[in-house]
Design a protein around this nucleic acid. Structure first.
Lengths: 182, 182
DNA sequence: ATTATACCGAACAATATGTTTTGTATCTTA
DNA sequence: TAAGATACAAAACATATTGTTCGGTATAAT
């Protein structure tokens, strides 16, 4: 990739992330981003179709970053390194905790549910493929569809709660809570 | 309330609801609404500060409509007619099923999570006050905060799943599923 | 060194927002 | 029913944002 492209791309992402810490996604304009990134507005449109695509790419990057560090993604299916169901969740919380810059918070906090929406949608895909890893320990007499959705929802909403409350609990503790109600 | 006010207010709501069935909330403009409602654009702003306030009022109306039909709201606390925990949920699903016009679907379906966000937020308030009605039958060794959030989340996400899948299950069945995983 | 291309700056039309003004119609109430 | 209040329409307004296009310049790859 052209060095110039990477530079402006990064600048746009940096500006976007900063702006997300200042205001809601809806109130950020393309002009805001390009001013801060110090690139022409036309350049933005050369890189991203719309603001929403920029967001989507950021979410995808964050999502991949989290899951790549705990397994390999071959094509469309993700192969986890750990096999024990509960250790999958613990690892997820561990990786969610140590996200360096606060991108995770910016995309998930009180007003912006953006990333978590993306998160759940993709978690759902994973859970459909590998329910055995995500499955609740208890036997539930409900349709598989419903159960898959429930596991993905409960995990996502637990993450949301955890983040909204300032990540006070340790990954171990929050995993414990999660498994207790699952 | 002035008869004229009520007329335009209703016209705006009607137009808004129709437009929600045609496109996403974000792509609806004030002009769209006032054109369809056949009122001046300035009139819109005399009634609603912004588009978002209109949405909020519609959500509030729908929420109240659902909960008023199964109890009384005194000030800020809601008193349910039924006392058995599980019958509260069944009644909720029953009331959610029989919403006449499809407002519920419009505000909750795949693309618009708008109402369900509002729904969860207010359900949370109710659950905090009257956890005994919403509590899971099982004893969970998790903090009260977490449990309250979990119950509200699980219910909301069950509703979302139910609506997204076309409300195929009867209220009784979906209540059963919900209680099975709670 | 040459060729390709990423970028800038500026301009562009099109659309949306939110406010203001003036005149008219309709309501309330006394 | 008459008088005063007010909700509304129509139109104009300044401002902001979007998405595209253009020629010129700088910086890449080879």
């Amino acid at each position: 990739m052209d060095r110039r492209q990477k530079k402006t791309r990064d600048a746009i992402f940096r500006a976007f992330i900063y702006l997300l810490s200042q205001k809601d996604f809806e109130h950020i304009t393309v002009g805001n981003i390009t001013d801060l990134a110090d690139v022409g507005r036309a350049t933005f449109y050369a890189h991203f179709e719309t603001k929403d695509f920029l967001l989507k790419e950021l979410c995808a990057e964050l999502f991949c970053h989290i899951f790549d560090s705990m397994g390999k993604t071959n094509g469309h299916t993700h192969i986890f390194e750990c096999d024990a169901p509960d250790s999958v969740f613990l690892h997820l919380f561990l990786h969610l905790q140590k996200n360096d810059n606060n991108i995770l918070e910016l995309l998930s906090c009180r007003n912006n549910g953006l990333f978590l929406e993306y998160f759940k949608k993709n978690l759902l895909k994973l859970a459909e493929d590998q329910l055995h890893l995500f499955e609740s320990p208890k036997n539930k007499s409900v349709p598989r569809d419903f159960l898959v959705n429930h596991v993905a929802s409960t995990f996502t909403e637990t993450v949301r709660w955890w983040l909204d409350n300032g990540k006070k609990e340790s990954p171990e503790t929050i995993t414990e809570y999660f498994l207790a109600v699952l």
